[in-house]
Amino acid sequence: MITTARTLTITWIALIVATVAAFVLCEMGTDVGRWAIWAAMLIAALKAGVVLHVFMELHEGTIAWKLAFGVWLSFCTVLIAGLYYFTT
């Protein structure tokens, strides 16, 4: 699978939009409710997944590599979101 410049640019725009969205969500602060913690970290996880697969081309690796980074990504997301959500 060859990545094209067009794919990269669409990815870049999506990442920018997602970053601003997460920022706006968190800037609303305590008004939005604590579910926003999970929403913000989900956005971060999606962005990280996109960077890994589109920019870094993790899809070229074997299943073991993809699995290792999948574990890493899920672990970081659940760790950060979970400990923010459950420890006030």
Binding site: T30, A36, I37, A44, A48, V51, E57
Partner: peptide, 23 residues
């Protein structure tokens, strides 16, 4: 790939230190 990793790590550090404490 190394440069993307600098980006990748920041994608977690930023919400962890800057954003989530606001909620």
């Amino acid at each position: 790939i190394f440069w993307h990793m600098v980006d990748l790590l920041w994608l977690f550090i930023y919400p962890m230190l800057y954003l989530l404490p606001l909620i």
